[in-house]
Nucleic acid binder design. Structure first.
Lengths: 157, 157
DNA sequence: ATAAAAGTTGAAGTCAACTTCAAGTCAAGC
DNA sequence: GCTTGACTTGAAGTTGACTTCAACTTTTAT
């Protein structure tokens, strides 16, 4: 398959494919300068990459999921750790959702006077809640996507 | 309070405080060149900023939560929309966790032969799962934090 | 045969939220 | 009065995952 075929079938952009190749996540059968040709298995690889990203793995971590010959070899401890991590994240998000929903209907004239809101604030500042990141521009949908909190404190220094 | 006092009490770094001030999220009583003095209410502001960040709002969005005079004025529709968004995210994360847990114990010699894993892959590639971001270095904990998927497709353009 | 479309490369740009740096200012203790 | 140490500023650097650009080369269609 040529690159445009892979783009069509995978939904991954050509520049991302080239980037993945440079980073060692996928391979193509190519002499430099000529056009890339991909084996059909690249689609499976891209699927695993997408899965890994959705689960919160970095590209470096995802690369470890492939053996040098290109087959899949998941580190089960790594996977389980990520699942645990996601679970903790979900718990925090759930209390966050509850708090936000309350804030949206709270009858108190000022949120600073509402006990539930105070509790939310304390949960956000003390304890485990931390930085988050967010993506760039999105398209013409009404509701905008966003990123989500990470766990764990950053070092001051 | 001077800046070091705010750093101590809030846990927010001095450079972040200056950054927030430049971005218009907090205010200080200062003639340029001299040292910043913060009113005690800055701590409440910082708490709200931390909450907003944990919920996935950008700094620009968080700025909208403050009126020009510095009091809090939450847009309830915005809050409710964010709660909905987090809820969708949680649902996706939950199926992701389930899939990961399965992958970690799956008896199939190759994941590509496991039907549950196939299903996970399909869920990750087709449909709503998208890019994610992740934070920088973290401290000496065993398990590493990470970011999480966002919703919504980016334009090919 | 040739023009346009599609592909190639390395380098630089993007985004958000900060951090780090360099160079200078100010304040407090001895 | 002078050395620290805390603070100030604007500018530039960081991170991850890409995208965009400029300048070419290669196919494909006419």
């Amino acid at each position: 398959m040529d690159i445009s075929e892979v783009v069509k079938r995978s939904g991954v952009s050509a520049s991302a494919l080239r980037y993945y190749e440079r980073r060692g996540l996928i391979r193509s059968l190519t002499d430099t300068g000529t056009r890339r040709r991909f084996a059909p298995t690249v689609l499976d690889h891209l699927a695993l990459i997408a899965l890994g990203q959705a689960a919160g793995f970095s590209l470096d971590e995802i690369r470890l999921m492939f053996t040098p010959d290109g087959s899949v070899a998941l580190d089960r401890n790594m996977i389980a750790a990520k699942a645990d991590e996601l679970e903790r994240l979900v718990k925090r998000l759930e209390s966050m959702i509850e708090g936000l929903r309350h804030a949206a209907v709270c009858p108190a004239p000022r949120h600073s006077e509402c006990p539930s809101f105070q509790k939310l604030l304390r949960a956000a500042t003390s304890g485990a809640l931390e930085r988050r990141e967010r993506s760039g521009k999105d398209e013409a949908q009404v509701s905008r996507p966003s990123g989500v909190a990470t766990i764990g404190r950053r070092k001051a220094r």
